[in-house]
Each structure stands twice: as C-alpha cells, then as structure tokens.
Design a protein around this nucleic acid. Sequence first.
DNA 1: TTGTAAGCGTTATCAA
DNA 2: TTGATAACGCTTACAA
Lengths: 343, 343
Amino acid sequence: MSNIREVARIAGVSVATVSRTLSHPDKVSEASKKKVMEAIEQVKYRPNMLARNFRSARAYSLVVLVPDIANPFFALVIRSIEQQAQKKGYSVLLGDTQDSHAREQDYIRLVETRLADGVIQLRPQWDQTSDQQSMNFPYLHLCATESTPGPCIRVDNVAAFKNIVDYLISLGHRRIGLITGLKGNPHTIDRLKGYKQALSEAGIPFDETLIAEGEFLIWSGVNAANTLCKLPNRPTAIACMNDEMAIGAIQAIKSHDLKVPGDISVTGFDDISYSRYCDPPLTTISQPADDMGSIAVDILLRLIEGETLDEEEHVLPYDFIVRKSTSVCKAADTNSDISQEPN
Amino acid sequence: MSNIREVARIAGVSVATVSRTLSHPDKVSEASKKKVMEAIEQVKYRPNMLARNFRSARAYSLVVLVPDIANPFFALVIRSIEQQAQKKGYSVLLGDTQDSHAREQDYIRLVETRLADGVIQLRPQWDQTSDQQSMNFPYLHLCATESTPGPCIRVDNVAAFKNIVDYLISLGHRRIGLITGLKGNPHTIDRLKGYKQALSEAGIPFDETLIAEGEFLIWSGVNAANTLCKLPNRPTAIACMNDEMAIGAIQAIKSHDLKVPGDISVTGFDDISYSRYCDPPLTTISQPADDMGSIAVDILLRLIEGETLDEEEHVLPYDFIVRKSTSVCKAADTNSDISQEPN
DNA sequence: TTGTAAGCGTTATCAA
DNA sequence: TTGATAACGCTTACAA
C-alpha cells in the first residue's frame, strides 16, 4: 500500500506537490505534474480516501432510509438517488429499516459520527412531535405528505387521489370502496382526504363501511378486498392507496367470480412496473420517481454545503394513467340517487 | 463538535483513558469510566468515526454491486445483505450499475481507495478472462453460476431449470418453448443447459425454433411470447428464465386469446412476490434470497478478516413451487411421437 | 511554483 | 490503571 510520501520520493518532489497534483492540478507546473503522474503509475498509488475524508471532515456519503427496499416504488426512487449521488461524487448508504425505530437510529448515528453527510428519508413522518426536533443536520423527507415538517419533496397526494376518485365518479360509480394504508400513516391521511373531497364535491355521502384498512402490501389488499366483496351492498369500484394492494384486490375480486372492471373497477397508486402487466392493467397515479430521486440529492447536497433553501417544500407533478381496470359503472342508474344530471 | 481531547479535559483524565473507555472498557477503572461517561454526556460527544476508521484502516462498509435494484429478486437479496451487514457493524454502499462497466469500476475504486472493505457482486461473471484477475481484494460473487470463478454463492441453476422442464414433460408437454435471457448471460447458459438435459433425458429432440431470446425484463417476455405464439406449430408450454418474463409472457399469451394454462402452460424462475398474485399464479423456482444475502455477508467478512476459505463455492438449495400456471398438456396424444411409455 | 511543517481525531505503544 | 506521545495519510497555510 503505497502512500503519498512514497510517490513524492519517487517523483523527486514534496508531498505537497503530489497532493496538489491530485487536488489542484492547476497549481502545479507541467513538469512536476508529469513526474508525479509517472511515479503514481509506477507504484500504482491510490489515494487513501479514508485519510482524505478524515482530513476534510466529509464522508461524501448519504444515508437513504427506506422502510422496505423490496417495495418496487422505493426501489425506483433509490435507483435514481444512487444515480444522481454517484454523479455528484457521493456514495449511497442503504438503510432498510423495516420500520424499526432502532435500526433507523443506528443509521442516524452514522451522520452524528461523521460517516455520512446527510439523510434522505423515504418514510413519511408519522407524528409531529417525536423525532423531528433533533435533526439538526442535513435531513430531507422524500415521499412526503402535507403534514411533513422541514425540507421535503412530495407530490400532492390529496389532489392525486381526488383525481382518481373524480374519475371513478365520472364513470358513474357512487359506491366507491377504499383500501387504505395503516390508519396513522400520513399517506393514508392525505389520500383519504382526497377521497373524501371527491365524494363531497359530487354530493356522495361518506360511507364508513366502504373503507377497508390495509398496510400497503399485496396480501393486505387481498384481505381488504375480500371484506368489501362480502358486503351486502358491495361497491362497484375500489380505489386502492397503492398498486400492490390493487394487485391483491384484483386477485381477491376474481376469486369471488367477479369481473374487473365489469363488476368492480379497481385503481392503484404509484404505477409500479407490474401495473402495466396485470390482468387487467391498472388505472393508477404515476409519481415521478426519477425526478424525485435526483432532486432529492441535489437539495440534500445544498443542505450539506450549508445553503439555506428558498423553499422547504417541493411539490412535484403526478400523472393520472388510465388503463383497463376501470370502466363505466353498469349499475349507475340503480344505485345513484342524484344520477348524472347537474344538481 | 467536541472531540476526545475536550472530553478528557472535562473528565480530568488523558485522551488515552477516554479512548480506552470507549474501545476497551475493561482496561479502565470504574472511577475513571464514570467520570468519562459523564463528560461524554455533558458535551454530547460522539466519536469521529472518520478518524477512527482512518486510524484502523478499515471502512466498515461493503459495496454491493447490482445490475438493477428495481429487479425485485435483487431487492430481496440486498435487503438481506443489508440486514446482516448492519448486524455485523458494517454499512452497505449501494452500487446500482445499470450494466455499465464504467460505473462498476467507479465502485471497485472505492475499495482500492479504502472507502470500502469488500465487494459483493450480484451480476454473474460473463466471460472468464476479463475482469477477474485484478480482483485482489475481498470479492464475492452472489447469484453465481457454474462457470463463476473465485468465491461464490449460487443455486444449481442447471438442476433447477431441469426440474421445471422435467415437470412440464411429466404433464405431457413435448413442445416446450423457452424464453431465455441474453445469449451470453451465464444464467442463460446454465438454465439452457438444464432445459436441454431434461429434453434429452426424455428423448425429446431440441428444437431451435422454440427458443426466444429475452433479457430478463417484462417487456422482453411479452415480445418473446408473441413470437412463440405466432409459430405455425406453437408450443404447449413456455418455460421462462425468470418470473418477470413469465409475467410478460402470460399477458402476451392472453392477448392472443389463448388460455394459461389451458392452451399454454407457463413457468418462471425466482419466485418474486407478484408471482403468487398473477393470474394465474406462477409455477416457479424459489431461490433462498435471505440465506444468500446473509451467507454472502458472513463469507465476505471472513475474506476481509484475511481468512482463507475452505470452500470457494457454496451451492444453496432451491424450491420448486407448483402453482396454477401449469397443467396437463391437452394435446399430449397428438403431438407426442413416443408418448408416455418407457422407451 | 515549490517545500516545510502543522494539524485533523483517533488508537496504541511505552513508561510510569 | 494511567498518561504522554507518536503515529496513520492527507491537506493546506505559510515561507521561500
């Protein structure tokens, strides 16, 4: 393991010149530079970044905190984060927390001990009070919600979900089931708000029995949809708070010998890659995963550089994607009381 | 940012005692330890790991090189790697290479520059000669194949794929289509070998026209299956080299108004989570993603510790999972020439 | 443009 | 059990 001193010796210059050749080549004469480069080549010198980082008090790495890397939407976002980070000379430390507070704290500690320069958090912020106050280091919420404090990037979940439900209503649906995430999850809260807004604007009363709680995982979509299908007056459409639950819901609905969308329309959220290939392909909301990742890195790096943000909150656009899992409500006339005419 | 010197000053001891309190608490008297801990608490001291790592010439981090983190099987493996690494006090640096050699080299450089202690490679080794020789540092192939040189962990792809095709043959299928990965991919090579072995043992001639090349991605499964469906004498079963292509294939087959498995049985490989929820659920091979990840970390850490391995190659067991995407070949009598009787 | 030398925060060696 | 001090490899004033 050769070091800068040996290179200097071989090149016949000082260590400072070697260091400068590598870090500030413009401050070194061509002659010296040449000698140094040759010496480096000769002894196959590689600078010890552990030393360099220590010296510069920078780790050049970011922690990405994610509840579950196996969630395909998160995987997409992380792929983009990694891409952009590498472009900027930073490494990504993957912190898959499996929703464990302890594991999350372990990763936070990496920043406190200087092994990472900042954190991108993909888990939404559950309650206001708990962990936010102590984050006195570069910390950024991605996949944030309306209630997220501090620097964050998000799409307008309320508007996006309202968009979906508006569409279902426009197809004549009035009994619209909802498969949510866990109750307290901020995404659940925002999207539920969108659901209620759409209903209320259309003059459709909110019906608690049409709400089934899931937890953003396929199997929970199966269970929730089973419940809704067994309802005496079952919904003609089911809006799911993510694609995975929608995929589970479709399977469950089929298992009741019902057709999607013939008997029940289904919608998702996220537009994961399988959504194009389910049967039927899923009507859903597409979040700009690539932009979210790269913008997150850019903003976090600015935070790391000590810049103060002009705007803490960045709201990105979403796409509403109509596929084959939704259709006109066959029962539109029978189960609607104010029907389609303007009120 | 307090440092060890300040803690020492406050505690009224030397820096050595502070250091020892943290790293070798057994070598410090209770009295000193107490004073030190109080001082640490008082100034909210956090050891600078950048310095510690520099001093100990260890990064305590591993690079995980993956062609695409958005591949759900890889995501599963990485989740397990991260888990085990954290347990052992190591961080995971995520290197999503998107099959770019340059990006892979950038990550290899992290090891050369001491920012990482070793590498777990999830990409299979394409050709023998190229990059292997220069890996004179802890380097481990996961998801390896028969031809992988050096330390590696794998399942027996040949046997596993033969298992699948054997099963299809046992259902009476004799025209068995195959959707492969890219030609040179070692997984393609091993699995093709298993396909051929099964055919040959059953006395079924190998038919080049039944082979369609994909690239382990959903859309490529769609294309490949379209090709196979348009064949004048189309196959009664299609074995796909991974689940994603199988999911694409199922969609394509349905789009030709054919039934799965009624008209064409379909199989996958990997058992990603969606495979249980497709329509129909997929018959496939399950690889032990969790074990693969944790064993990989354990072995790599031993390599990092300088141990020499008793065995370079670790072959892990797989599961064959029968679901609803495969059924008895309806055309068994018409298109088989030696039928079911022993030859 | 170049060299000398101090210093980053920690650990470990050696004496006490 | 403790303390003084020399490393570790690099960067960067400061001086030449």
